[in-house]
Amino acid sequence: MDAMTGWWDDYFWASITVAEVFVCSLFFMVIFGLLGASAKLSSNAVARSLANTYTVFFRGTPEILVVLLMYFGSAVTLTAIAQLFDSSIRFVDIPPFWAGTIAIALVVGSYATETFRGAFSGVNPGSIEAARALGMSNTQTLFYVRIPEMWRLALPPFGNHMLSLIKDTALISIIGLNEMLFVAKQATSTTGKPFTMYIVVGVIYLGFSTIITLATMLLERFANRHVRRAP
């Protein structure tokens, strides 16, 4: 562990980056998942086929490729647009942080789409009718009845989606984000101790996943509070 001297603060900042990517991608993953599920359940055929294309593509493509395509695809597009205005511009990209965050959110969001779709179908139609009969609008019914009831059913698989997200943050090193694998690689080339450098990464990731697993358990207990009978 002597080899670690001088590297701890790099690992610390890298794990902060990982946490940031996780939180941002979690936010977008939920949005993509809810949009995808709404589209799949909608009566609009165009929306349904768009959502199907989305899930087929992102569930059927290696995630590392999605990260690369997102980064280079957006860079090529942005560069082309920028050159329309100023032909001396050579290269424009979106920050690897955002390209990577959106990429993994899209991938995991495609799985979340299926989770949310199933969970929405599991909501008691009687609850929805009751809300409508009380005069609540479609939107109010969605946010106050359907999503809260769906949530309980979606939580167990959703915990797995969060674990996927945290692990996928490791992929973003490939487009140059200064996260833990990136640091480990640099540290290895300076110290020549790859095992030490990578096992530290492993332990930190394990810490993150443990936190997520515990958080999911607590959320499940909270979401099921009304399912338990009187004490």
């Binding site: 009687g126 609850s127 009718e129 009751a130 009969a133 009831e149 009304h226």
Partner: peptide, 13 residues
């Protein structure tokens, strides 16, 4: 218009 259903349909959460 109030409506009462056979299966109560209270909001469980």
């Amino acid at each position: 218009i109030g409506m009462v259903f056979q299966s109560f349909n209270l909001f469980p959460h």
